[in-house]
Design a protein around this nucleic acid. Sequence first.
DNA 1: TTATCGTATGAAACCGATTTCAATTTTATA
DNA 2: TATAAAATTGAAATCGGTTTCATACGATAA
Lengths: 353, 353
Amino acid sequence: MENVRTGTGKTITIYDIAKEAGVSASTVSRVLTGNAAVRQDKKERIQSIIQKYNFRPNALAKGLSDTSTKTIGIIAADVRNPYYSALFVACEVAAEEAGYSVSLANSLGEKEREQAQLDLLLQQRVDAIIQMGGRVDDLITDDAYAEKVRSVCRTTPVVVTGKLDKAPVHSVVIDEAMGMNLVMEHLIGLGHKKIALVGGEMRVNSTYLKYQKYREILAKYGIQENGEYVVNGTYDPETGYEATNKILELKDRPTAIIAINDFAASGALRSIREHRLHVPEDISVISFDNTYIADLVMPKLTSVDYNYEDYGKLLIETATSAAEGKDTANVRMVQPEIVERDSTGPAPRSSRK
Amino acid sequence: MENVRTGTGKTITIYDIAKEAGVSASTVSRVLTGNAAVRQDKKERIQSIIQKYNFRPNALAKGLSDTSTKTIGIIAADVRNPYYSALFVACEVAAEEAGYSVSLANSLGEKEREQAQLDLLLQQRVDAIIQMGGRVDDLITDDAYAEKVRSVCRTTPVVVTGKLDKAPVHSVVIDEAMGMNLVMEHLIGLGHKKIALVGGEMRVNSTYLKYQKYREILAKYGIQENGEYVVNGTYDPETGYEATNKILELKDRPTAIIAINDFAASGALRSIREHRLHVPEDISVISFDNTYIADLVMPKLTSVDYNYEDYGKLLIETATSAAEGKDTANVRMVQPEIVERDSTGPAPRSSRK
DNA sequence: TTATCGTATGAAACCGATTTCAATTTTATA
DNA sequence: TATAAAATTGAAATCGGTTTCATACGATAA
């Protein structure tokens, strides 16, 4: 087989099937959709012809006629990030169970791409759009963008992960405050009082909410907040590495580090190792997202999990019921829980007092 | 904002635009496609109305009329695997540049899902299908499946990653032999002679080709192959961990381990650490795929890279030219190269001799 | 045997774009 | 200014399904 020439075969239509079966296209359509009765013998004859030709009804024609494509568009920031890929696959599976399929587009964090992807999905006439992460936060500052999203909402329901007041969207949010609450109680329960916070941008809502709760719990336990223990940045290993380097240079080192996600935590681990300290004997590390990274690094990370399967289900459920015009609560919450592994342990004696 | 009701607005069509502009739908269509001249003043009037309503032509209607959707369907084994997500994003970007969009489906390694996804993409009338990994290997044993793929090829071009003789598909293959060649020369150049091979299934072509080359190079340097140094399994960290455990129990330990991918390598690193050995001082580790995992673990992994950007471009280029009926070579190769990091070093003196 | 009711079926309209073809308007040329 | 040539334009057909509506058919009851 040298050169192949493919895709030249004629695609057959419902009319071809109808002709061969000696019936009208309407009848074939009824067999396909099951929306109306067809006499048994004809039905079987038609089905066998469909089989024989491997006939697959044109989804474009069907969607055009139905004005529903049974497709949910998903815009993710970047599926190369395991958080998004886990969520996407969960959505794909949940959608399938609900009789929908999904269509993925990556914004790659660029606002122009995100808008282009949005347009693309709208042209494809998806029944609803799920936006995971992305530049949603820009809505707060970029009025033109906010107007655009509002215009989209007029025709197609939009579901976002995270809170959003500037447009009439549905949202599925992680209970960030609860997540941080679990983390803080876990650490404080282990005797930690000097707790650092690494990575994330304060302008991002989910990060800000975590920080709020962090302070709240410190206050609750009468622990004085140390400004030097909070080092922001982005969400990658490099940030975790550099922030932790800074923190470990401090005179009064913390005994625990909370990383904004598993990536940042992996960077923190590297920094700690280079400082010849041990996790969790000298310092504990805990993070958010519980991606497979948590299971891959050494030591394995204690991390906050969101149950991606349920999370995806909730997103799809919200999207499909909005698409079907059901009137639903527009904010739903995902409850986090801690998965304990090897990176957290009791605060070292020396610092306990 | 309590409950939101969205998606109830009427979607406007080319006819609405035409009516408001006082022209026929044909004229509006000509403005949209740019396929024919329209007088300047009308053109501007129409464009401003399109702007005003944020009109987006229905891609279903367009696809139905054109018989081309400018969409490439992609079936990946699992985008949660960074190898596939990197490749997918590369394809998405390359497709965009070529004026196409992509539609992703995950087979999750299940043959039934893969077939269902294939049907889905065909119904969506994608112009071509790219199959990454997946159960392609089953073609060799499953004749019904092979027949199905052959039937698909009749109407829609199929591009697979990896070699395939059982169906008239195009393929883009990694030069696995070259990859292993680079790895072996790298290790042998560092003085390694006792080299182990960890993970992968021999029935998978890419793994088999690597193994062939491994033996060939050993022979070339007159090194006796040690059967105990080759431990297969799957492609996950667990496999790497267990295989390496087995290997490190051997009387005559190897000085280098080649892992089938970065996941397996991360498991190998864990095992090595637990055996209180150091990488690369006591033992070198090298792997394939150069995903971000390689950069995340400690020490950072030396790994074989495929230049995902070019790889994706090649896949898309093959798919689009097949879709456009161009007659092209049906097998193309991706050239690998080694990215050196911290996990490989000279063979330990003691074992050199 | 005939009237009646329910079921099965086909013709035709529709979904929203593109494109061909013929008609009309402009523009250029004589 | 008349006429030929070129540029615009709209009507209608088409892509491949679904669905409504009217009709034909079959079965049941009187």
